[in-house]
Write a protein that binds this DNA or RNA. Structure first.
Lengths: 137, 137
DNA sequence: GTAAACCGTGGAGTGCGCTCCAAGTTCAAG
DNA sequence: CTTGAACTTGGAGCGCACTCCACGGTTTAC
């Protein structure tokens, strides 16, 4: 599969895919004409990459883990270990979120304890540009 | 409270705090000598900022929400809405994590369906530097 | 009084994860 | 044979969230 098709099917830009290849996150053969030729398996792999990334893993971490897998004698065992590790991380993140959630719910009930500044004081912030200085996305 | 104390008590660097002030995330008065003077309330506020940030909210979003609060007629109502919104986001993220979790667990059980490349092929990646090109943190 | 610690500003630099661009192939359709 | 889409490389640039640095003023401790 060439990069355009992979791009369309994965939802990633060509540039992003080329970038991923540069950092070793996806592999590809080259056709005689020099075009990248991706295997079918690149598609689920990219999907996994995006998922892991969205959940807070850096590309470097993901690439690192993939490299661990490749270098491992016992791929199955390494894979299990990696997944177990990721599940633990995911569990920890979920716990954090649950904590924030209840914190939020609790505060939502109890008035207004959350302010960038002391109550009733003139806010220095309001004197600077009314909107945040950095561009909002 | 001056910036050094706030830094130590919050665990944030002075530079980070100054940066937050620049983008309107924290307010401060200035003492006659020009030094920043932060209210006690800056401490829990920074704590909140860090938590929200760690959970995936950008500083711009956090500042934005804080601004919404300030501009609101009915601060209590706005706060409740904001919190409800964040709880929903948190819930969505938790659901995603749960999905990834079960995906991981499932895959961990069933052999090795996760590869950057087709099995057994020479990997183009392996020809480039053996370790990922970008520095790992 | 002087040294050390602390504060200020401005500006440059960093790491990540891309995006955009220019200049040059390759290929398929008409 | 030409047109145009898709591909190649290399390099520049960007947004975010800082960090680091130089240079200078202020405060505190001895």
């Amino acid at each position: 599969m060439r990069i355009g098709e992979l791009s369309e099917r994965s939802g990633l830009s060509r540039d992003a895919i080329r970038f991923y290849e540069r950092i070793g996150l996806v592999g590809s053969h080259r056709s005689p004409n020099g075009y990248r030729d991706f295997p079918e398996s690149a598609l689920p792999w990219l999907h996994y990459v995006r998922t892991a990334q969205r959940l807070g893993f850096s590309l470097a971490e993901i690439a690192d883990h993939a490299a661990d897998l490749r270098d491992s004698d016992d791929a199955a065992a390494a894979l299990s270990a990696l997944f177990a590790e990721k599940v633990a991380i995911v569990d920890a993140r979920m716990a954090e979120l649950a904590a924030l959630r209840s914190e939020l719910v609790e505060r939502a009930g109890t008035g207004c304890p959350l302010r960038p500044d002391a109550p009733g004081t003139a806010r220095a912030v309001a004197d600077s540009p009314p909107k945040p200085v950095l561009p909002l996305r």
